[in-house]
């Protein structure tokens, strides 16, 4: 491994520490926000936005997705599509129900 590579990594180390700090702060924030009397919808939205943000920090930096290879982006995009399908189509099928609405 060349010197420049070693140098690269030591630069990354700073970003790891920053990410860690951000994750810790966001954890506190999400707990704090949850103590407000939001409606269920709003609470879900806020909590999921924060979680998604935290999750993307982990994925982007700790799992270094920010500088990954094309094949992996394709794979994850494909997975993301099927993930969304898996989450929403069964729900859609349940909500668009004949006869007894909301009874699964």
């Amino acid at each position: 491994m060349s010197d420049s590579h070693t140098h690269d990594v030591s630069k990354h180390v700073r970003s790891y520490v920053l990410v860690f700090a951000a994750l810790a702060v966001l954890t506190i924030v999400t707990v704090w926000v949850a103590s407000f009397e939001f409606t269920v919808g709003a609470a879900v939205a806020v909590a999921l936005i924060i979680a998604t943000f935290k999750g993307s920090l982990v994925a982007s930096f700790f799992m270094h997705l920010v500088s990954e290879k094309k094949a992996i982006y394709w794979l994850l995009a494909l997975t993301a599509i099927f993930f969304v399908v898996l989450i929403f189509l069964p729900l859609g099928a349940m909500l668009d129900h004949q006869g007894t609405p909301n009874v699964p």
Partner: peptide
């Protein structure tokens, strides 16, 4: 899991 199970 944390927000989904504990906070919502």
């Amino acid at each position: 899991l944390f927000p989904v199970l504990y906070l919502l």
